[in-house]
Design a protein around this nucleic acid. Sequence first.
DNA 1: CCCGAGAACTAAAAGGTTTTCGGAAACGTA
DNA 2: TACGTTTCCGAAAACCTTTTAGTTCTCGGG
Lengths: 334, 334
Amino acid sequence: MAGRRVTINDVASLAGVSIATASKALNGRHDVRASTRDRVLAAAAELSFQPNALARGLLSGQTRTVGLLTSDSVGRFGIPVLLGAEDAFGAGEMAVMLCDARGDAIREQHHLRALLSRRVDGIIVVGESTNPRPSVSNDVPVPVVYAYGPSEDPEDVSFVPDDVGGAVMAVEHLLALGRRRVAHVTGPRHYKAARDRAEGLRLALEAAGCEQAGDTLWGSWSQRWGRHAAEMLLMAEPEVDAVFCGSDQIAAGFVEAARERGRSVPSDIAVIGYDNWEVLSTEARPALTTVDMNLELLGRTAAQHLFAAMDGRATPGVHRMPCHLVIRDSTAAA
Amino acid sequence: MAGRRVTINDVASLAGVSIATASKALNGRHDVRASTRDRVLAAAAELSFQPNALARGLLSGQTRTVGLLTSDSVGRFGIPVLLGAEDAFGAGEMAVMLCDARGDAIREQHHLRALLSRRVDGIIVVGESTNPRPSVSNDVPVPVVYAYGPSEDPEDVSFVPDDVGGAVMAVEHLLALGRRRVAHVTGPRHYKAARDRAEGLRLALEAAGCEQAGDTLWGSWSQRWGRHAAEMLLMAEPEVDAVFCGSDQIAAGFVEAARERGRSVPSDIAVIGYDNWEVLSTEARPALTTVDMNLELLGRTAAQHLFAAMDGRATPGVHRMPCHLVIRDSTAAA
DNA sequence: CCCGAGAACTAAAAGGTTTTCGGAAACGTA
DNA sequence: TACGTTTCCGAAAACCTTTTAGTTCTCGGG
């Protein structure tokens, strides 16, 4: 952990060539004799030479680095997106700079400046919810892609989960099981995710000519609310035979309370969750059927799109990524 | 999102000074007249000049960038550590490069090389468990700090949670409540965390002159195992009045099963968990008393120590960071 | 008016790499 | 031998900033 860093100069001297030739040999250019190339490569290996990415980036204007700007990586949803993106970049020899603005616009500006000063080739902005967020793309001289939370500006490129589609899929599954009295328990109304999923439910029921059982119950994204809602619902609408919950937390609470009230899941009531948060969905009794938003795939896709945008092949707009249904015991055939 | 990047040259021309003067004005050096400095600053603001960190780093040899190498950031434990580190760095104008090796040694080497080629000033290695892991510090020319999972080499610098101490704290809390027949349900034996916590239990009981109720039950880190263990334990050792669980998942399963068997928590049995994983610990019924490992603080501390090491002030060895107890309803006074 | 001191400014080098362009060597042909 | 062509190699510029080592300017005192 000491000693001057070895440069291409050292490699060139050891191999007995000029730095120009050394550079060409190392980069596999073809106007260098095979024997010379081998000498250079051997010298580089002996000195365990690592080219200085700063110098290279300074010259080429490309750093092969992207910024990942998240508003709240504590959140459950940012992480998988981030991992997917990291995955896609890692495979392509890109490095990822992580910045967490903690939901503070000032800090976000600060991080943005820092990223630009480091000459990142592009930026992914990961939202903390699917609610649209202010654009940062103005006067940013590199491509920006928004993941999970879309930009308010429709000219920007955003990738979001298709919550309406996911809800439709969930409800169609319930209907296919023969359930006809479907209720809905979900999170706070100010979450676009909650509203979209309610809308998906409405569409699917309408298409099947069904009525929703009772009004949508808006609450919080907690297990506690799931339990509470179960008690209210089982009292008010005893003939309900299926419940679509807006999250796995709510669903986990719901099945727990239902079981305690002597209602059997799934035979009396089929329950379906959302998010596929495995610590809840696989450990609930019964294990929860749930909608998986494919967040890692979403992150990977956003990253791949950022590559395309760096090449000038951007396709603006909000791209909705399909979800998939994970079927477990809470909706087993009646 | 186009146009040549503005350099200090542009600023200097606009202000009518040389680039040397512009540089000094921008960096607040004092051998430049106040009026000149203002002219330069105004020019820089007008062009919204951002100094090129690559050029600066190339010259100074310092990139103000650190690498965060994680084996498995999907894991529950890497994330808070990572956030704490990011926090400490962010405040100091450092940037963080995130690399996830996915538990693959080859990929880890690859990422390590990439980080060095980008001339990071230091590296934090975040383990996926508290089991010691191979050192990467050899032939790495910058300081390395290990967080959560320590290095096998005692000459390296590692920060780990004090699992023995955390367990002692938990058991002392149970003893202080007057419980005397304490059982232990925990995860797989090949986890050092599980063994350390069992050791802490042993120490605390020994100090109080108590016997452990039954043998330690080794299993998995799951809710399912917690439920299963509860059934076994309540059958085999009916007079148990307290259970120390190796994780919140286990504890959540335990209290659930205990409640179903008609045992009241905490009046019949006090239960204590580990990790303070809030989605489980606050939503269990009753809410779980648990040991919080202060992982964000651990990450922050590791980061701060990396700063120190960059200045040549490293203190080798394994540093155990204290935990704290979060008291909730599952151990309310009898 | 001239000198000297200090303040304010600038030219140039340095940092490591890639690329362009020119030159040298080798080789074949007339 | 003279000349053209191909192959291989090296000098130097470029990228952008900071720092060093001057150089010029300003101004008070003689």
